[in-house]
Design a protein around this nucleic acid. Structure first.
Length: 322
DNA sequence: AAGTACCGCAACCGCTCAGCT
DNA sequence: AAGCTGAGCGGTTGCGGTACT
């Protein structure tokens, strides 16, 4: 006995949607919404379709602001970098690309982008041919420190891992970037435990946490403990200080709140751009954090040059308690 | 011109998970 | 606590269009 089918397959239409069906579905949803029940929707809308099929058609094709057509280089970068970090979590990747659907991205990855990367010819020593979406005209240098790895993988929403050096932090197959990319394996491994939210590179919790940080409000339901120290070991301080070197201003932020605004109001620990302050061991950070009202444990690296908090304060060290 | 291979995309399938009873 | 149901997700399939022989 398998699972009961979600609908009577004998009495539902399958295959491509006709323009009439599209119009019916669109009109119904725009008028009445989904009512939170896709299974019941087709009958109400007068469609002989499975509810799942309606949902898919709406989400992937009919709903407003869906983008079709070619992906931009920036979108390529976002997809590649997030794929390197979190794997085939298409819905999470899609959440970073407004107007793109998970299905669209999945298809694009499977049919084009993957080949674009893996099929790149290995250039001869005199040939500086580069990945088509890499802005850098030369192969990236070998990183010397974990901190430079971090610099090389600095992320923002608009251009994930397109950093000051225009390098990128993923590896697929073998090409002229292999050595460089393999040298970043350590970081990539650490990035398995981070995710990207609203211009914030977020660490925390372990793989479950990264996998779960998909809410658009920035919530992260599974993050339980700080993983930075565990993942990158004693280089943590280098990571923090070099991030400061590179970006001049930054905020290392920690909190448990479910929204960014709430997070700022209640549970902040900032490490500013004073070099001395930046030498804090993560354990000390933990202690500071421990003095607050935190029950969760997300660490946020926060580019202060590009994002201000509501108070316009970047540089102080301390904890703000309720 | 006809047949075949390949490609890209839309849609389907089956699983997991969360919410409800 | 257990079972059921529906939403959501990722993997896979199948079809139509295009390129190639």
């Amino acid at each position: 006995m398998g699972r009961a089918p979600c609908c009577d397959k004998a009495n539902v239409k399958r295959g491509p949607w006709s323009p009439e069906e599209d119009a019916k579905l669109k009109e119904f949803i725009e008028k009445c919404g989904t009512g939170g029940n896709w299974i019941a929707l087709p009958q109400k809308a007068g469609l002989k379709r499975c509810g799942k099929s309606c949902r898919l058609r709406w989400l992937n094709y009919l709903r407003p602001n869906i983008k079709h057509g070619d992906f931009t280089d920036d979108e390529d970068r976002v997809i590649c970098s997030l794929y390197a970090n979190i794997g085939s979590r298409w819905s999470i990747i899609a959440a970073q690309l407004p107007g793109r659907t998970d299905n669209d991205i999945k298809n694009y990855w499977n049919t084009k982008l993957k080949k674009k990367l893996m099929g790149l010819s290995i250039p001869s020593s005199n040939n500086n041919q580069r990945l088509p979406f890499f802005p850098s005209p030369i192969a990236p240098p070998q990183p010397q420190t974990i901190s430079s790895l971090f610099r090389d993988t600095y992320c923002t929403t608009s251009s994930v891992c397109n950093n000051n050096n225009n390098n990128i932090n993923f590896s697929l197959g073998s090409n002229q970037y292999s050595d460089y990319l393999q040298s970043q394996e350590r970081l990539v491994n650490s990035l398995k435990y981070c995710t990207l939210k609203d211009n914030i590179l977020m660490f925390g919790g372990g793989s479950e946490a990264a996998a779960s940080c998909s809410s658009s409000d920035g919530s992260c339901s599974y993050a339980k403990e700080i993983k930075i120290k565990e993942e990158i070991g004693n280089d943590c301080n280098y990571l923090i200080s070099n991030y400061e070197e590179t970006h001049q201003k930054f905020i290392l932020d920690y909190g448990s709140s479910s929204t960014w605004a709430d997070h700022h109001q209640k549970t902040n620990v900032y490490l500013g751009n004073n070099n001395q302050e930046l030498q804090y061991d993560i354990q000390e950070v933990k202690q500071l954090i421990g003095s607050g009202n935190n029950d969760n444990g997300n660490l946020f690296f926060h580019d202060a040059e590009n994002k201000t908090d509501e108070r316009g304060m970047y540089y102080y060290l301390g904890s703000e308690l309720n």
